[in-house]
C-alpha cells in the first residue's frame, strides 16, 4: 500500500467525525449543539432530547447501515469474483425486505428479534439462490441475469405482500422498502440491527483470507487450504447478517455496496481482504453524507435516502459498463 493510499484512507477516517458533526447539526429544528452535548444524555431540554434521542440514533444508524452495505458489497464482489455484484442489485436486499414485510405487516404478535432474524433468513435464501443459480465462478452477465431475475421475482412478491397487508398505508410503502429511509428511527432500531451487523462483520473477518485466496479462483483457493463448504457458508452468512439486518431497519438502500468497494479497491491494492474494512468505513461515510444531504435539501419532505444513493450510484454504474466495455476487465 503506497503512502498516498494510506493518506487517503486516513482522510476518510478523519472525515467520519466531521460528517458526524454535520449530521448532528442538520435537521428541521435549529438547536444549540454544544449546549445539548454538554447537558448530557439524561437532560430533559428539548435540544438535548433532539440531539440524543433523534439525531444521534439516526446518524449512528446511517453509519451502521452504510458500513454493513459497504461490507456486504465488498464481500459479495469478492465471493463471486465479480465487480458487478451488489446486495441490492442481485436481490439479497429484496429477500430481506420481503421477509421483513411479512413479519411487520402480517405478524404483529411476534417479538422484536424475529424481525432481523427473518430478514437475515430472507437475505440468506436470496444470496444462496443467486449463488446456486449463477453457478460458482459465473460470468458477469450470467450472474447479473440470475440476480436480476431473483430481484424482480422478490420485488413482485413484495408488492403482492404489501397489496394484501391489512394496513391502509401498506401499498404506498413499497417505496420505502424499495428505496429505504432513515426517518423516524431511534435507538431501538440501532440496538436491533447492531448485534447482527457486528456478527456479520465478524464472520466476514474470519473469511477474509478465503476471499483473498478466491482472487485466484475456486480451485487455487481450495489448494491454499480453503476447501469445503465452510468458507463459502461463512461468507454467505456474513453477507446475510450484515445486509439482512440493515434492510430490516432501513429498507433497501442501493448502490452503496456497488460504488464503495469499487472506489476503495485501488486504495488497498485490490486486496479483497483489506477491502472489507475500507469499504465498511467508506460505506458508513457515504451513507451518513447522503443523509446529511437529504436533511439539508429536502428536510421533512423526506426524499428517500435510497433515491439519493441511486443518484450517485446509477451514473457510476453507467461509467462502469462503458469503461468495462473498453477495458474488457469486467
Amino acid at each position: 500500500m503506497s503512502t498516498r493510499n494510506k493518506t487517503l484512507i486516513a482522510v476518510l477516517l478523519a472525515a467520519l467525525p466531521v460528517a458526524m458533526l454535520l449530521a448532528l447539526s442538520s435537521g428541521p429544528v435549529a438547536i444549540d449543539l454544544p449546549a445539548a452535548i454538554a447537558s448530557g444524555w439524561r437532560s430533559d431540554s428539548s435540544d438535548s432530547v433532539i440531539l440524543w434521542q433523534l439525531r444521534l440514533p439516526r446518524a449512528v444508524l446511517a453509519l451502521l447501515v452504510g458500513a454493513a452495505l459497504g461490507l456486504g458489497g465488498a464481500a459479495m464482489q469478492g465471493m463471486l469474483r465479480n465487480p458487478l455484484a451488489e446486495p441490492a442489485l442481485l436481490g439479497v436486499s429484496s429477500g430481506a425486505a420481503l421477509a421483513a414485510i411479512l413479519v411487520l405487516y402480517y405478524g404483529a404478535a411476534v417479538s422484536g428479534l424475529m424481525l432481523p432474524l427473518l430478514a437475515i433468513t430472507g437475505a440468506l435464501l436470496a444470496v444462496g439462490s443467486v449463488w446456486l443459480l449463477a453457478g460458482r465462478g459465473a460470468s458477469a452477465s450470467r450472474l447479473v441475469l440470475a440476480g436480476v431475475a431473483i430481484n424482480a421475482f422478490l420485488s413482485a412478491l413484495m408488492a403482492l405482500a404489501l397489496n394484501y397487508a391489512p394496513s391502509m398505508f401498506a401499498m404506498q410503502e413499497i417505496v420505502f422498502w424499495l428505496l429505504g429511509s432513515l426517518a423516524n428511527r431511534g435507538w431501538d432500531q440501532v440496538l436491533l440491527a447492531l448485534p447482527f451487523i457486528v456478527a456479520g462483520a465478524i464472520m466476514l473477518f474470519l473469511a477474509r483470507n478465503y476471499l483473498r485466496a478466491l482472487s485466484l479462483g475456486e480451485t487455487s483457493a481450495a489448494s491454499l487450504g480453503f476447501a469445503g463448504r465452510r468458507y463459502p457458508l461463512l461468507v454467505l452468512f456474513g453477507i446475510a447478517f450484515a445486509v439482512g439486518s440493515s434492510v430490516a431497519v432501513a429498507g433497501t438502500i442501493g448502490f452503496i455496496g456497488l460504488v464503495v468497494p469499487h472506489l476503495m479497491r485501488p486504495l488497498v491494492g485490490q486486496d479483497p481482504g483489506r477491502l472489507l474494512w475500507v469499504s465498511a468505513l467508506a460505506g458508513a461515510l457515504l451513507l451518513l453524507l447522503a443523509d446529511v444531504l437529504v436533511l439539508n435539501t429536502v428536510g421533512t419532505q423526506e426524499l428517500r435516502i435510497g433515491a439519493v444513493t441511486a443518484f450517485i450510484g446509477a451514473p457510476f454504474f453507467f461509467w462502469l459498463i462503458v469503461s468495462g466495455r473498453r477495458e474488457m476487465s469486467l
Binding site: 428541521p28 429544528v29 433532539i50 433523534l54 423516524n184 421533512t300
Partner: peptide, 9 residues
C-alpha cells in the same frame, strides 16, 4: 409535515 424534532421542540 411535522418532524419528530419539531414535535419535541
Amino acid at each position: 409535515r411535522v418532524s419528530l424534532e419539531q414535535v419535541i421542540a
